[in-house]
Design a binder for these strands. Structure first.
Lengths: 207, 207
DNA sequence: CGCATTTCTTGATGTGGTTCAACTTTGTGC
DNA sequence: GCACAAAGTTGAACCACATCAAGAAATGCG
């Protein structure tokens, strides 16, 4: 079976998921996939465990095999803001810290007991210089991330809290159910109280 | 003289600026720099001229040689929001449109009479596949853009309007003077009236 | 199971920032 | 250099969303 056409399913192992994912972005040989996936190490984290801490350098790019994580930062008043999150087959780290190898400004924690595949910075450099195709893969990942971040900035600037929630709900219905409300609220740039009110209001008008 | 150590100055030509810029990111031979820069075409735009329009595909990645541009989107009420801007030696386009080659959602317009070097999508693909180093260069540009966008999202989520303005002012004092106030205000996520009040208040408390 | 902790809800009140409108200043094309 | 357009200012009213507080529900864990 050709992994390029393979749908990623919960039944697959972590390495299988990762191999299938990269094969959909750039076409690889079996050996290349093995080399790529072999550069990652599996790690398990319990709920509330931290994989990146402010002040310390983000060592890894993390591919989520099972579970969920969120990255958050604190403001001057100690308020918590969700910068990004990740569920199965998504990536997460403090990119600013990872790519510049500087101390992180945010925390990344497990929201559930989770399994990830971790690629450390040095191994990533080795992969990229060993094969043009790996360089291409990371370039595409970065570009897509850039485009997604730009869409989020547009959404934050142009939409109201309720519009952002509605958008999220239609595009990520499963994730919206799975994330704790305070995580979703702070990701969308509002308080948990306000999101509660929005949901309440929508429940009433819907039926 | 080695371009890697060369400071970019207003006296340089567009191609010289571009060559110096890429050489600071990845080390290139003279031929490589010529090949890279040769793939760009110079174009001039008058103030208020549009280089990307909503509905049409962003054809180019634009390197600003002289002048200034801004990218903006309109919300449901027709309000104008500055998504990004660029002055000399910065890049600008609708990335989402450019990388996926889909219709743009935003407009990019010249804020002054300007000169740019334009790389069209097909030429960019050719460059990337012809040489691993070019692929690396674009990967690094995308990564840095991603990190910058993430910092902006954090700033929008965690800071007040005044804090964002203060931050901008200390980090980009010249740009802050050069951009029209309504552009800066909508970039920072506030109205031009409110930025006017912030500036006014700061003038009073400073002296 | 049962107790503690975390998460969510709801109301009352507060505020950072917007809106609208009228005016002043600055820039620009002919 | 004048006329008109574009950009910036100021005040008053308003609103989307935050804050605070207190209780209810859900979750986790010994």
């Amino acid at each position: 079976m050709n992994a390029a056409s393979e749908k990623i399913s919960a039944a697959m192992t972590g390495p299988e998921k990762l191999a299938a994912l990269i094969d959909r972005i750039v076409s690889f040989t079996e050996e290349e996939k093995l080399q790529f996936v072999g550069s990652f190490k599996e790690a398990k984290f319990k709920k509330r465990q931290c994989i990146v801490q402010p002040g310390e350098c983000a060592q890894h790019r993390n591919f989520v095999v099972q579970g969920a994580f969120r990255a958050y930062a604190l403001d001057d008043e100690g308020q918590d803001h969700t910068i990004s999150f990740a569920v199965e087959e998504w990536w997460i780290t403090d990119y600013n810290s990872y790519i510049y190898q500087q101390p992180a400004t945010m925390s990344v924690v497990a929201l559930e007991n989770s399994v990830v595949l971790q690629l450390d910075f040095t191994s990533e450099q080795a992969l990229k210089s060993s094969n043009h195709k790996f360089e291409t893969l990371f370039r595409i990942l970065a570009e897509r991330g850039l485009a997604a971040h730009q869409r989020r900035i547009i959404s934050n600037l142009t939409q109201t809290a309720e519009q952002r929630y509605t958008y999220f709900l239609t595009h990520y219905p499963k994730v919206a159910q799975r994330l704790p409300q305070y995580v979703l609220a702070s990701y969308l740039g509002m308080t948990t109280e306000f999101l509660s009110r929005i949901r309440n209001k929508r429940r009433k008008t819907k039926q």
